[in-house]
Write a protein that binds this DNA or RNA. Structure first.
Lengths: 402, 402
DNA sequence: CTGATTTAATTTGATTTTCAAATTAAAACT
DNA sequence: AGTTTTAATTTGAAAATCAAATTAAATCAG
């Protein structure tokens, strides 16, 4: 960047060090195209600022010549928290600047939907509970990333609407920042999973990829040119409301033919409910149990149950194929927390995608399944916070020198 | 950019001058964030190099103070050609560095599919025919943009496959460059329409938009962050082969349910052919005439014809809505050359899109129809060439100073 | 017509960023 | 102990940029 003589080089080098973790200066120079002289100067500055540290020449068998000195991000430089606001709980992780997980925590919420103040209060409580066993406090944090379902304006930190918030058009970022005194970074949860994949997961090597998540709905995060693409209205990629059938099944959103209306839990249960053998197909008191039962029946070969589940899989494949036909990404990550999405992650589904995309000489994009624990979201939120903190740290370099 | 001390500022300023055509230095400084001092220095260099020129203070009523001096791109600096390789003809335009069209030309090809050498020969011939009336020759050109249907690897200038070429995996760029002695820029034709919209059309103000073109197939060009997004396999956005129906109508590509299989000419004729009143619905000897007849019938209220045409429109709307749900662009441009796409550009279709996208507080993206002449493609090719020539010109600045 | 005022552009004198080439450092070979 | 090899640093200069001061070109006020 230009204007105010901003330190583009520092940014680039710090990012390169992060991505290639233990890396010698000469390789940095090679990778970034920045001269060795500059690399020396800039890394010295980063080390002086405590963001980077040298590590003993990572033990490749002793070569000739002066041994290279590897550089890595200095974990102790900063501390960030990642928080996912889920249906009726908060899940949190604590990470150092290098991305090492130092703690995790789960906090049960009293209600699904809370007012802003109440939510922020619970958040502060949960953070405290995670930090106190380590002898830390919220003031030790350099940033907090928050993932929330709904429609989020990232620029402003505004939550236009969320199932977790009873208020509308809340500036959650400033609410948290004033309450906790810590820089906050708020984003839609689907974007944060993409962020997690990019930083810690399967997207580390890729520059253009897509992450699809299945929870109660179907979410999607898009990474283009190493950055989250958020669309122009900030309402994000609504893969779940992609239409897969003209005048098709009715969706929760009120429209017809949405992918979600074919693959979501409620869609499967709806189908199961109309067959005469309803009890047999989806027995259980909770919806989760019913789904479980339905999937088990399908697995056991029940023709009607199979029929229901199979179509969901085929619709899902069709939706994904459309993404490939439009985007042509390097990689599609199906990130899932629950085993219940097994039917959508089946071999046949993935094969179905490959049969529905335009054939060219080159191989089709990889489709991989990534099962995370339930901390996936929180880790993504932490990754987002790390990005923000890194940015601020570089910006502060110049200023803090005087 | 960094490395070899590349002149990022020059690039930014030249681009800003191009986009805001007659613009005073002080506004340039404002817009780009570059200091006024630097703007003076850099623009002086651009003027010295002949890329930019001053124009008389464009006549706003005389304000107080020293009058601003506007800057603009100097058209005479360079000459580029844009060439579209169409089904059985070449269409060409000649543009100056400012983007003014100086000439156009149409060249009929002997065959639809040619060998590389033959095609390049025809190309040279056509260029010569366009240039000679102006007393120019090919050597006066600084670059030539070439648009060709098919699968193109832009980085390499490779055409993997094209309906216009009998050879496969041809490096068309180097073939043209060696034959003509002019830098060549080859791209897929759908991308070039996007480029044309971005430079000369409705996409001038937008940074993220999508251009859909209808010719014999359905094409799409994507602009993200002011740049053409080409996907990772270079096979481009295959909007036409987006699936809109599970196990749907058979497409030319061999798969089922492709959008093209519902909205392309052959799809409409296929439908018309199975009704008992075939002759009446789609009379004519050529396919074009038949389509014309079918559309006329639909317009006149024939129920079967209407039924056919209406569904095509609704499918088209559904495909476009999916794009919006995934991409959330500022703008969708439906760029068409022929009036025959009228039924797809109807009010109802555009209304259909709006009813199938996720509703948020913000207004939906604009959908606009842009009817160009048949030079649309060639102009896009010229725009692409201009981009390349501009790049080269800036890079040459430093080098040529010694 | 003259000087005050206003706004745009340029000059001046740094500061920052970067680099190529020369030098130094730290190791393994011989 | 000296040679070779490779990594990192230093040195001296060039390039890019900026803030502040200055100059330029106009209008306005009397």
């Amino acid at each position: 960047m230009i204007g105010q003589q901003r330190s583009y080089g520092r940014r680039v080098l710090l990012a390169a060090i992060r991505q290639n973790s233990p890396i010698a200066r000469i390789d940095l120079s090679q990778q970034t195209g920045i001269s060795r002289a500059t690399v020396t100067t800039v890394t010295a500055e980063l080390i002086r600022a405590g963001l980077v540290e040298e590590v003993a020449a990572q033990g490749t068998e002793m070569a000739r010549g002066r041994p290279r000195v590897d550089l890595k991000i200095r974990g102790a430089a900063h501390l960030v928290a990642g928080i996912k606001i889920a249906n009726s709980s908060l899940s949190l992780v604590l990470m150092d600047f290098e991305g090492n997980q130092l703690a995790e925590h789960n906090h049960v919420l009293s209600k699904t939907t809370l007012g802003t103040d109440a939510l922020v209060g619970e958040l502060a409580k949960a953070l405290g509970d995670m930090l106190s066993p380590l002898g830390k406090t919220v003031s030790d944090l350099s940033g907090a990333g928050i993932g929330i379902a709904g429609i989020v304006d990232v620029q402003q930190g505004l939550v236009h609407w969320s199932p977790s918030l009873s208020d509308r058009n809340i500036n959650l970022r400033s609410a948290i920042e004033t309450a906790l005194g810590v820089p906050a970074f708020v984003d839609n949860d689907a974007n944060l999973v993409a962020m997690a994949e990019k930083r810690f997961g399967l997207g580390r090597e890729a520059t253009d990829f897509i992450v699809v998540t299945i929870e109660s709905g179907v979410g999607m995060g898009i990474v283009i040119n190493n950055e989250i693409y958020r669309g122009t209205r900030g309402c994000g990629a609504e893969f779940g409301h992609t239409k897969v059938h003209l005048d098709g099944a009715l969706c929760r959103c009120g429209q017809r033919g949405c992918l979600e209306a074919y693959v979501a839990d409620y869609a499967l249960l709806r189908e199961a409910s109309v067959t005469s053998s309803r009890e047999a197909l989806a027995q259980g008191t909770t919806d989760e149990q019913k789904i479980e039962a339905l999937l088990q029946r399908a697995h056991d070969g029940d023709p009607v149950a199979s029929n229901i589940v199979l179509r969901a899989g085929r619709m899902f494949a069709m939706g994904l194929a459309n993404i490939v036909n439009i985007f042509d990404p390097q990689l599609i990550v199906l990130a899932g927390e629950r085993m219940q999405s097994n039917h959508l992650y089946a071999e046949e589904v993935i094969a179905g995608i490959k049969n529905s995309i335009v054939q060219v000489d080159q191989p089709p994009p990889e489709v991989v399944i990534h099962r995370w624990g339930d901390l996936m979201w929180a880790k993504g939120a932490a990754a987002y916070a790390l990005e923000g903190v890194e940015e601020a740290a570089v910006a502060a370099l110049r200023a803090g020198e005087a």
